[in-house]
């Protein structure tokens, strides 16, 4: 059985519907919402601020600290027990490292920048939505960044290379590979590359090609969202 037509009728290189908004959390220094299909991520940035415990401080530059969290009834499955788990800890770590390469925190030695990512609704691709939201929130908070980071998951379902897998495709009854990537759009460099499942070298190359194209579309949405926060109130 080959996976010819996607379950929701999209083309192989077509993403779900994307929308983004900046400045959604008033009390945060920067915040953003990123929605792709039924996956919704909110990111809030606080800081730079005083960092405790002191032994974790870095006297050379500020520390980026991310927290990824799925809300209890966000998924289609069982209630997610609140308070973090091994999965969320790993994802927090990879999000941190995928954002660290664009962020310049040299002005803030010994301080910490907190990024909280909440998933209020999930349908696969959560870490990618989280990264997209977090990079917009960091820009909104006024940090010096080389570029934004755009992220999407690519993969293979039953022999077919696809962009932006949803949960039904990820749990498809057949051979599935899920490859979340994050891209610095200007240079095309990858800051996140993980893989679940198996693909051949050629398939991986093709998947990355599609992923980068999708990321440049996401980048446009991100840019537009950031700009509209400031051009929107001109009409008031």
């Amino acid at each position: 059985m080959a996976y010819e037509k996607r379950l929701d009728g999209r083309k192989a290189d077509e993403m779900r519907k994307i929308s983004a908004k900046v400045g959604v959390i008033k009390e945060a220094n920067g915040s953003a919402m990123f929605k792709i299909g039924d996956t919704v991520a909110y990111a809030a940035v606080y800081g730079p601020r005083n960092f405790h415990p002191k032994f974790l401080q870095n006297p050379e530059k500020g520390v980026l600290r991310c927290k990824y969290n799925m809300m209890p009834f966000s998924g289609a499955g069982d209630r997610v027990r609140p308070g973090g788990n091994r999965r969320s800890k790993e994802i927090s770590m990879v999000i941190e490292s995928s954002l660290a390469s664009v962020l310049n925190l040299e002005d803030f030695p010994n301080a910490v920048v907190d990024v909280f990512i909440e998933l209020s609704q999930t349908d696969a691709g959560t870490r990618c939505a989280g990264i997209c939201a977090a990079s917009m929130a960091l820009a909104d908070a006024g940090f010096a960044m080389k570029d934004l980071v755009a992220s999407v998951s690519v993969g293979k379902v039953d022999g077919k290379v696809l962009v932006d897998l949803d949960y039904k495709e990820e749990s498809y009854d057949g051979e599935v590979a899920d490859i979340p990537i994050a891209v610095i759009p200007r240079s095309g460099k990858l800051t996140l590359l993980q893989m679940d499942g198996r693909v051949t070298k050629d398939e991986l190359k093709k998947a990355l090609e599609l992923g980068k194209k999708a990321c440049s579309q996401i980048y446009d949405v991100q840019k537009k969202a950031l700009k509209s926060k400031f051009s929107g109130d001109k009409n008031e």
Binding site: D147, L148, R186, Y219, Q222, K223, L226, K227
Partner: peptide, 9 residues
């Protein structure tokens, strides 16, 4: 004009 990080000026 309003610019965002990564935009070529």
């Amino acid at each position: 004009s309003v610019v965002v990080p990564g935009e070529e000026l």
